[in-house]
Design a binder for these strands. Sequence first.
DNA 1: CAAGATTTACTTGTGCACAATTATGTTAGC
DNA 2: GCTAACATAATTGTGCACAAGTAAATCTTG
Lengths: 153, 153
Amino acid sequence: MKNQNDGIRYDALKLGNQVCFPLYACSKELVRQYGPYLKELNLTYTQYIVMMVMWEKETVSSRELAECLHLDYGTLTPVLKRLDQAGYIRRERSAEDERLLTLTVTKEGKKLREKAVSIPPCIAECMGLSAEEFRTLYVLTYKALRNMESKDN
Amino acid sequence: MKNQNDGIRYDALKLGNQVCFPLYACSKELVRQYGPYLKELNLTYTQYIVMMVMWEKETVSSRELAECLHLDYGTLTPVLKRLDQAGYIRRERSAEDERLLTLTVTKEGKKLREKAVSIPPCIAECMGLSAEEFRTLYVLTYKALRNMESKDN
DNA sequence: CAAGATTTACTTGTGCACAATTATGTTAGC
DNA sequence: GCTAACATAATTGTGCACAAGTAAATCTTG
């Protein structure tokens, strides 16, 4: 009797019943799959998503970047320094407000975009989901993300 | 003209069109949401998923654990040492095969399970998805995970 | 305008996460 | 039985990721 009740009581704690775990494992595996492709661009996954924003916006404030990537400065500062060092972006203080750090993609940085265009289809292929499934995954992850962020005020 | 074509050409590289990014961000945010709850058990998320396996199996080999958590020894070794140090698990070499590391949950470790049962509903609530959506997310992430793992040999 | 609050960014410390290398025990083939 | 292959685990090195604390510039408010 005790065992039966315990089984039910603890069911939600089984790894196989968790939604969080496959999400976490899938995310890690995904980043790992990027590895070989990004290695050719000398980028890590985090550096890659920074560059994605830079390609799109050309110029962006550090704060804006942190917000749209959901990263804090503790993570971002060293990443940006490495990208600067590599010559892909330029970091400079804003003249009007000395606190603000403005980031600009360099010519070298733009070149990477040309090489990067081939990556998304490869990743999509290796995930092996249908267009419909990709869309569903997109919608659900963003929904959960939004919900969680609204929680921590 | 060039700009128009470029727009289309680079569309897949926009952050907003990526499936990988919300998955990655959602996973991180999820782990962050666990923080306050796990802090009361003196566990990190990684330590928590190790304990979930330990609670379920009582005894497990290090290799088996690595496999089902999709973690390598570089990650696992220090995590297991900390859990051992904290008194939640015991690490011992197998007598028959000195290479094998056998892990056993301690009485202290089992106590944590009682406290942990309250966590899954809190996390589910803060993700704010319906039962149907949870199931879909579960299925899709496992499917992608399986597909990706079949790729790397 | 001066003091305190706020914003922006950096720093420090801890703990993953993984690739690559090393170490050691076990097994297989000759 | 001995050596080469293999399996298991630990180590090393690099780079996130985030909390907490610090610093400096700007803004607010009396």
